[in-house]
Amino acid sequence: MSMKSPSTDESVRDELAGAVALFHSLSDPTRLAIARHLAHGEARVVDLTRALGLPQSTVSSHLACLRDCRLITGRPEGRQVFYALARPELLDLFAAAETLLAATGNAVALCPTYGTDTGSETTEETTR
């Protein structure tokens, strides 16, 4: 993804479509947790359900999404499938994300749109 000056031009949107799809595919907490787990090595569905505490159907559906995005691969062995990251570059992406999160402190967590800071209540919630 090359970085160009900001524009609302349709060609720029088209150019960014792949990056948007990549980040969207990893924006779901379950898919990100699966990908992070697979960063440590291969795993079967049963391994992922135990590690993440999620139902098999949930894990399987998110694995299908990641596989469709070609972010993971499945290696059949008998009646089992061992899943792994398809691209080692994902490890670099995770490392870069951790570096960026550390550098920005709580800025992302406090973002009013995408933040995760649920510890403080808004004025509207406290007046109910």
Rank of each mutant, 00 (worst) to 15 (best):
M1H: 13
S2E: 14
M3K: 13
M3V: 15
K4L: 13
S5L: 14
S7H: 03
S7R: 09
D9M: 04
S11P: 02
R13S: 12
R13D: 09
D14F: 11
E15A: 15
L16H: 05
A17D: 08
A17G: 04
A17I: 03
A17T: 06
G18F: 02
G18N: 05
G18T: 06
A19D: 10
A19T: 12
A19E: 09
V20R: 12
V20D: 12
A21M: 05
A21K: 08
L22H: 03
L26T: 02
L26R: 00
L26Q: 00
S27N: 04
D28E: 03
P29G: 00
T30M: 01
R31L: 00
A33P: 00
A33F: 01
A35W: 00
H37T: 07
H37Y: 09
L38T: 00
L38A: 01
A39W: 01
H40N: 09
H40Y: 10
E42Y: 10
R44Q: 13
V45S: 10
V45F: 00
D47S: 02
D47C: 03
A51V: 03
L52C: 06
G53C: 06
L54K: 14
Q56Y: 14
Q56A: 15
Q56R: 14
S57F: 13
T58I: 08
T58K: 12
S60T: 15
S60A: 14
S60L: 08
S60W: 02
S61G: 04
S61C: 09
H62M: 07
L63R: 10
A64Q: 15
A64H: 11
A64P: 06
C65P: 04
L66E: 13
R67D: 15
R67E: 15
D68S: 15
C69R: 14
R70F: 14
R70L: 13
I72D: 07
I72P: 04
I72F: 08
I72N: 08
I72E: 06
T73G: 11
G74A: 08
R75T: 12
P76K: 03
E77Q: 09
E77R: 06
G78E: 01
R79D: 05
R79N: 06
V81W: 00
V81Q: 01
F82Q: 11
Y83T: 07
A84D: 15
R87I: 10
P88I: 08
L90N: 03
L91K: 13
L91W: 03
L91E: 13
D92I: 05
D92Y: 07
D92T: 13
L93Q: 04
F94S: 06
A95D: 12
A96R: 15
A97H: 06
E98G: 04
E98V: 03
T99I: 05
L101I: 05
L101S: 09
L101H: 06
A102Y: 02
T104N: 10
G105D: 03
G105H: 01
N106C: 07
A107M: 04
A107Q: 07
V108D: 08
A109T: 04
A109D: 12
L110V: 09
L110R: 13
L110K: 10
C111D: 15
C111A: 15
C111M: 12
P112C: 11
P112N: 10
T113H: 12
T113R: 12
T113S: 15
G115P: 10
G115H: 07
D117T: 11
D117K: 10
S120I: 09
S120E: 07
T122P: 02
T123V: 13
T126N: 10
T127C: 11
T127S: 14
R128G: 11
